[in-house]
Design a protein around this nucleic acid. Structure first.
Lengths: 190, 190
DNA sequence: ACCTGAACACCGTTCAAGT
DNA sequence: ACCTGAACACCGTTCAAGT
């Protein structure tokens, strides 16, 4: 195990300022927000940003982990309230709507569920796959979800539905319809 | 009708060189290919590129119209060979695979089917909507496609499936599976 | 150990000067 | 009428100098 020495006080402060500034910037301008601008907002040199976050992806992930983990936790809440099939549907709707409403989140989740070489294990990715896993298996045991579907498929398809809905430029009003088509396709053949 | 005066010989030549260079660059590097690089490949000043194509979107569209129109034409060919429901499925598969195999095409088709203000009528968009329209209506009359689905929905969803498949990084090997789920969901409820 | 900000490379876009 | 390429603004990334 690698010992994580505590950050120096100024480093820790800068780190947190960067996260806050990043969350704001991404929410306002989407995943493409200028990194230089984020450093400026945080009152920090651009080099400091790179010291803490080697690339945009890392910053995006750090800025949104909490939110993604909350989505993961929602899966368990919902599972307690609804029968498996409905729970999965419900979670997928919240997930998809989140991707549309919170700018930058879709991009993050996209790369979190991407098979990109061996190092593709991100915190967000594992959180989502874990949450999806439980819902998927439960629905399959119940018999309301096809057996030939993996959690990762569900996540990718949710991303696809979010993308398709975005093309409509109607603030996600067609999400329910597109999701209904998907969940219909996901039912086991009778 | 606006009379289109023929271009001056050198202009016409540059225009074509740009198209060729653009098609190459987009195919190699995706829709993000450097415009400056395209101008250089075409042996032309960067200002000339902007004179002919006001923005990346215009260039991308011009470079790929032929290909998109070919996809549109395929719709009619397929419609002659197969019953409506199967024809639609088949066309969707070719469309989706095209978006994955030809770099830059997905982005173009995405913006071609986007509702983006009143000026969203692009050549590629209308070609695709026309082709989709015929297949969709035929399948609906036949009773193999839900009535509450518009051609534009189909195109957006195909884009979504392509996006979802891309996340797998397996060169589109999961396209058939994801498309099968979609077409299953598109069947009328019995 | 960490920060700063100048420096560099690269890109999109405009426009004065040229034919 | 059209072309060229320098000029400008902007961005990501690196790194020498500083504390």
């Amino acid at each position: 195990m690698t010992q994580v020495r505590p950050m120096r006080a100024d480093a820790r402060r800068n780190y947190e300022r960067l996260l806050k500034a990043a969350a704001q910037a991404f929410a306002e301008q989407g995943e493409g927000a200028s990194l230089d601008d984020i450093a400026k907002r945080a009152g920090v040199g651009s080099g400091t940003l790179y010291r803490h976050f080697p690339n945009r992806q890392a910053l995006l992930e750090a800025a949104y982990v909490d939110r993604v983990e909350a989505i993961g936790a929602r899966a368990d809440e919902i599972a307690r309230e609804l029968p498996p099939g409905e729970a999965l549907e419900r979670w997928l709707r919240e997930l998809t709507e989140g991707m549309i409403q919170v700018r930058g989140l879709k991009a993050l989740l996209g790369s979190a569920v991407t098979d990109d070489g061996p190092a593709a294990v991100t915190v967000c990715g594992t959180a989502l796959k874990g949450a999806g896993e439980r819902l998927v298996r439960a629905a399959q045991s119940e018999g309301t979800l096809r057996e030939d579907v993996e959690p990762i498929d569900i996540l990718r398809l949710a991303h696809g539905v979010a993308t398709a809905s975005e093309l409509a430029h109607d603030d996600g009003r067609c999400v329910p319809r597109y999701l209904a088509l998907l969940t219909e396709g996901l039912r086991p053949r009778g």
